[in-house]
């Protein structure tokens, strides 16, 4: 993978805030490393898609959001959910198929959601979250909530028609919608340059939508850009496209043999976290303070995993509940 053209920001961010965001990144990393192990050990069934190496985008973008803001995510959405603030114990419980899970074991990794804090769900359909977020932005505008919606999507979604439809509608209606393209260079098993001829920022400009590309592995750059962009959207500036260049360290999914990828393609997983750590030290924080935040993440992950292990499995007697809000014949 080629390294992205960077637009690093030197904008000052409060060191304590930066430390908290670094903590979020480390938490996402530790969670996914733990999930990888749990998957290998057979404690997590199904498919999981990890965002290792992409943590700065989730942490940085969500730093500009509050609970009223809504986020639609992707199949690679663990980081988005965690950065939005889903409870860690219920997150692990969901992915481990427990009754205490966020979705009571009905969704799993690809459908983690917590609508009480505006997390409208990861999504198993590539690109599907983009028009969902547009509808959410439409609701913010209509109801005058003061909130904005964020559509996270990967570069694999660039060729999906709904992206192009949504860019058009968001522009027509000047919706409070932030498009965040996490460009890791891969569309499942294929390099994106073999799948998409355009560039997302240029494409957006055709629809009259402003955009910019940032180094998605630079927490300070993502955070600074997001703060500025979100403030503009919140004040009626209309939609905006943020392309964050990053790397997919792991395969498309856990267990992907990646025969399509050469060793030289594999970037260093520690990169964005090492960079945020360096930024913290440069900002005057001590090694001890940074290390303490990182240890907190490790402890939190282990506590959540143990709680999930101790929790009852998804309730089979309630398996058919929740298809409809009210009892309907044929559904419980």
């Amino acid at each position: 993978m080629s390294k992205p053209a960077t637009s690093r920001s030197d904008a000052a961010i409060d060191p304590d805030r930066l430390l908290a965001l670094h903590g979020t990144m480390v938490l996402i990393r530790k969670v996914e490393e733990r999930l990888s192990q749990l998957f290998a050990d057979g404690e997590v069934p199904g498919f999981i898609h990890l965002s290792i190496g992409q943590e700065a985008i989730a942490a940085g973008v969500n730093s500009g959001l509050s609970d009223i803001d809504t986020v639609a995510s992707t199949h690679r959405g663990h980081g988005h959910a965690l950065a939005k603030g889903v409870p860690l114990d219920r997150f692990f419980a969901e992915i481990m198929g427990r009754d205490t899970g966020l979705c009571r074991g009905r969704g799993g990794s690809m459908h983690v959601a917590d609508t009480s804090i505006g997390m409208l769900g990861a999504n198993g359909i590539v690109g599907a979250g983009i028009p969902l977020a547009m509808g959410s932005a439409l609701a913010h505008q209509t109801r005058k909530t003061g909130g904005i919606a964020v559509a996270f999507f990967g570069d694999g979604a660039l060729a999906e028609g709904v992206l192009h439809e949504t860019l058009n509608m968001a522009s027509l209606w000047s919706l409070p919608l932030l498009f965040v393209c996490e460009n890791n260079g891969w569309s499942e098993f294929s390099p994106t340059d073999r799948q998409f001829r355009a560039n997302i920022v240029e494409l957006a400009s055709v629809f009259g939508i402003e955009g910019r590309t940032v180094d998605g592995d630079d927490l300070v750059a993502v955070t600074a850009a997001t703060q500025e962009i979100v403030a503009a959207i919140r004040h009626g500036g209309g939609p905006y496209v943020l392309e964050a260049k990053t790397n997919r360290v792991r395969g498309h999914y856990e267990g992907d043999a990646q025969t399509y990828r050469t060793d030289g393609d594999r970037p260093d997983a520690a990169d964005p976290i090492a960079r945020s750590r360096a930024a913290l030290l440069a900002a005057g924080l001590t090694e001890e303070a940074v290390a303490a935040t990182e240890s907190e993440a490790v402890v939190a992950v282990e506590t959540a995993v143990e709680a999930a292990r101790a929790a009852p499995p998804a309730d089979v007697s309630a398996a058919r509940n929740g298809v409809y809000t009210d009892a309907v014949r044929g559904a419980a």
Partner: peptide
């Protein structure tokens, strides 16, 4: 509704 465990 179903896949989010009835939360919405």
């Amino acid at each position: 509704r179903f896949m989010f465990g009835g939360q919405v």
